[in-house]
Amino acid sequence: METTTDRHDVAIELRSISFTYPGHEHPVFDNLNFSFHGGHMGLIGDNGSGKTTLFHIMVGLLRPDSGQVLFNGKVMETEEDFTLLRRHVGMLFQNADDQLFSPSVVEDIAFGPLNLGHSPEEAREIAMTTLERVGLQGYEDRITHHLSGGEKRLVALATVLAMEPEILLLDEPTNDLDNAARGRLLEILGSLDQSLILISHDWDFLSRLTSTFYALEDGQLVRSNQVSIHQHQHVHPLGDRRHIHPPC
């Protein structure tokens, strides 16, 4: 299984991964194989099918019972390996509150760059530029836990982008977002030149950002066919008025 090759020379590969949560009977993954060579990819699957677990295994937050994780062809084994990998692979968590742990916005965004060895001045500079990229100029001294849900999500994205990863793993980024915040997130993600893997139940959002889909079914990754044309029904506010659907 391979996705389209991108201009970036990065690859994550999972070989024969098996994983069972301690105390659970059924394995989440049973001999799963997967490789990602950049581009934009959507990951779908039912609740509890292991999408988030897959992300966590890719970046070494969870270790598989058996199998290997390879980054750019190199087997990742120790915590040090994964620490290096995490410089290249950024992850946006489902809940932004889990991701924003510093008191002020600028400190939170600067946390990653500081850990990467940038000086405080450089880190502040990076934080300010990144804030501008996500359209939150002037938010640097705001207190993170006083932000709105949409703002938290964008700041969380900024904390990831500030580390300049080549691959972004996005775990249900549109959860709990209103339309305006969702629109802004779509705009920002669409403008990035990073490769990304996107978990979402939001089909519209997925189809605007990605063209390749994988589905997690019974512990295996199955490539889903390209989007097919079909008739469908849907609801939205004021649908009885004349309206135009933006092209997908």
Partner: peptide
């Protein structure tokens, strides 16, 4: 939270 912190080095 600890995971999120690890992800950022």
């Amino acid at each position: 939270v600890h995971n999120a912190m690890l992800m950022r080095g």
